[in-house]
Amino acid sequence: MDISKQKKADFIIVSIDGSLDTSNYALLDKELDALVSSGEQNILIDCANMNYISSSGLRIFLVYLKKIKAVNGKMVVCGLQNMIKDIFSISGFSSLFTIYKSREEALAAND
């Protein structure tokens, strides 16, 4: 899995490339922790190239959703592949996150 970051308007876009699972969720944890610690309040997770997410990955999403909400920020996701959409739907995470089709749509909606 690769993680890349990009600043766009009020958002930090964090792109996840590959499979987010037990072997590497700690990397995402570290990246997001650094962003929240540095005062970032709006995070967009771009999942367009994420082909798998395990429950340990979902847990990291949840941890930072709570942290971001605590500072009145926004954490949204975009570009879910079909299998990821199913995982979000079954686990109930669809009701927790605002999910956009693409990063353009996410940015426009939060402009």
Partner: peptide, 11 residues
């Protein structure tokens, strides 16, 4: 039939 309810312990 899934009930689409949240995982337990999260919220």
């Amino acid at each position: 039939e899934p009930t689409k309810d949240m995982v337990v312990g999260a919220i």
